[in-house]
Design a protein around this nucleic acid. Structure first.
Lengths: 141, 141
DNA sequence: AATATATAGTTGACTTTATCAACTATATGC
DNA sequence: GCATATAGTTGATAAAGTCAACTATATATT
């Protein structure tokens, strides 16, 4: 294994660790919101006023479409999210937050950004560098 | 929400995105090894010659001990891992890799390093910075 | 236009992941 | 010795995840 591979390996291992460590912090907020880590993430991905097709969600989560059906079922039954048929393509259903969902999402974000988050260990500089690197990685625009 | 919170939020969102994107690459290898993402991670955490108490595993994964029982059951039934009573404390069971498990782990690491292509988008400098920042995040060392 | 093919989402059967409460066995503190 | 804490298992249960089969729309080809 060459040097670059080692870095890649290491980064992956650290990400996994981060993910699970982060998960450990969620229950503290989760007790309040009663959301699983994945539900948090889904809520996070649906930005207010920016409806998200279910297929895109499956894509982002790298999971089967039928799994998304279940995830959305549970969120919808709690009144956080709603499905709407797309006017452009009637096969597509887009997800949008209900007012309750948007409120919960906002509270959730505040919590996550708050001191329960290990991210606060980083300096502002580091946080910005991290964001830049991750943006390059995820190839967002 | 202030500026620092926004950065933290953004970083978190990107980390989660990256994590799931990365996870999407696993099944490709998983098809070969038939390991779930979590099983991969557990195998990753048990370093050869460095037996791991089950309680520490539960700790690292931030999950209930009974969950670890199941995870280890499945890995053990496939001959990748074995439980051994600790000589110091007879309540404790330490996990160690079987030769098969060690071999699989090595192949897995090679695969993951090869497949985590997005990392190759980064310069070597950026890769190292990322590793450093992630280390600070998970508070290793 | 008619037919073929591809895509979005759901359903049903099934496995894995995860939690909680209750239990066994061992350690540790007084 | 007795109380209390800790490590791990078991059983019940729910959520997360996959796959194959299905419905309904879209799009592409002839």
């Amino acid at each position: 294994m060459n040097r670059a591979d080692q870095d890649a390996c290491r980064a992956w291992q650290l990400l996994m660790k981060f993910f699970f460590a982060q998960r450990g912090h969620l229950p503290a907020s989760g007790a309040e919101f009663d959301l699983s880590p994945i539900q948090c993430h889904v809520l996070h991905l649906i930005e207010p006023g920016r409806p998200l097709p279910m297929s895109r969600l499956a894509d982002t989560l790298s999971c089967d479409a039928s799994n998304v059906t279940g995830l959305v079922d549970r969120l919808e039954s709690r009144g956080l999210v709603r499905r709407r048929p797309s006017p452009r393509d009637r096969r597509v259903k887009v997800l949008h937050l209900t007012p309750t969902g948007a409120r919960l999402r906002a509270r959730l974000l505040r919590q996550m950004a708050g001191r329960s988050l290990p991210l606060s260990r980083l300096s502002l500089d580091q946080q910005r560098t991290l964001v830049k690197i991750l943006e390059a990685l995820v190839d967002e625009k």
